[in-house]
Design a protein around this nucleic acid. Sequence first.
RNA 1: GUCCCUAUCGUCUAGAGGCCUAGGACACCGGGUUUUCAUCCCGGCAACCGGGGUUCGAAUCCCCGUGGGGAUGCCA
Length: 525
Amino acid sequence: MKIRVRFAPSPTGQVHIGNIRTAIFNYLFARHVGGEFLLRIEDTDLERSTREAIDKLLECMDWLKLDYDGEIFYQSAQADKHRAAAAELMASGDAYYGAADESGKRPIFFRLPLNLPDGRTVRTVGPAELALHAETPVEITPGGIHYGALSAKGKPMPTVSALAGMRDLVLRDGAGQVLFELAPVLSRVLAGESFRITGAALASFTRREVYYHDLVKGELAKPLDGMKDQVIVRSDGSPVFHLANVLDDIAQGVTHIIRGDDHVENTYRHLLLFEVFKATPPQYAHLPMIVNAAGKPYSKRDGDAFVGDFRSRGFLAPALFNYLALLGWSPGDDREKLSLEEMVAAFQLERVKSAPAQFDIRKLSNLNGLYVAEMPTDAFTALAREYAPEFAAHPAFAAVAALMQNRTKALDQVRDWRYFFADDFSRDEKNSRKQLTRPEIRNALAILAEKLAGLSDWTEAAVMQLLEQTEAAVGLDHGKLFQPVRLAVTGVAGGAELDRTLCLIGREAVLRRLDAALTLYQGTE
RNA sequence: GUCCCUAUCGUCUAGAGGCCUAGGACACCGGGUUUUCAUCCCGGCAACCGGGGUUCGAAUCCCCGUGGGGAUGCCA
């Protein structure tokens, strides 16, 4: 059978890196096994889903080259099918109406199947006993068994278990006397009858559990008595995520579900839904969450975790893709910078970690710098123009870009190139004051300006020579003049080679700025 | 509260009982190259959460604690 995975985001806002990382893992897995990578837009929440969000999502996927197979599947278009499926469940007794809301409308609950035999999804664990808070009456209703579980402190904790979890329930009082047996009256309960038992101190039943093998987390199981029936159609008639999700996965023939860790608990319910719909459950793989620099889950406050933000800050799509792929996964050797082909070739769900991974912007920056450095100069220059449209047309732009490429980590640094093109750059005041107020430096700068003004041959070599001559003339050590000159002309203490920088800025501008700096820091010592 | 998952340098990670004196990368700190800055090169700092087992031998297996994460919705 053809392996098929899907990325199923809800278009309710910006695209979060955690989401896109899920898409990346799905994509890598699909390409690795030669399967299909489908895109499903889960836009059932019409209140929050917007066209803009869908466009934004598509734009992000396009940017990262997450090309999907086939047509986009819109969940909202399936609503009628979802409701029809719920009606089927009603007819077969696998679903029932719950209590009405304020307006008198009733939601539909999915009843955890009572008679699913031991098999691929459910298995019998063995006899189990549960201590109850005897003063709290036990209520047996068609919607489940309500009771007060006994806390460590002897307090009652209101709990509901699905009927399926305790279908052979026996209730006893403190003396061991049997108070109630569920099995003989189960059909009456299913027909709508309720029972109320007081004084029960012990519940015994045969424990059964839902189980599956998670491709990243391994063997996982949850006892049925720890589960509750689930709303699948809201009282307003709209299908709930669980129903829609499972039905769509069946409709699309999804074989492997790769999603966030936060869905593991849902999996048990979904497995049961697959069973009642007579579908073969897919394989599951749950990915660890990505947490912020503080090790905490991303919240609204961490507004910088959107894919669009990384793009505008000048991160390259392949670099972000590469970095995100490495969050929770590694190829197993020491490679970190991997091409798409290498990632596809090495990707295995078995190698995915199970603990949350912390996002580190510094490591991303470093990786991005590696990708920037290997760009063809033309491509880098063109991209740089996009990040600094105000200088893009400047005649020296291409030369500046070529000079600055290998020291650029992220494209937003292009905005710091202002001093190459305009006089109104910002100055490192502290450093400037320290250097440009010293008399011997000021003297040297004045002499340098004079020499530069008369220089016939404005080349890097000639400029460098003048710099050295000036240092020698005023008795400064080699290199002592570089920093002040740089500060006067560019406003900052660091940058590309000084001679090349000065040449690109041009004689007139250099002289103008030398003069301006001398005036600016005059008498401030 | 309860249930589930998880735990190696500050961070991402390698590690499948002996290859571990625990490897790589980012960050950080030094040195070299550059008569300045950065790149680059070399070097350094730095971890098996704690306690019990199992074993001739444990980062690796088991149990208990602790920390972190998730779930517990008519959100997805």
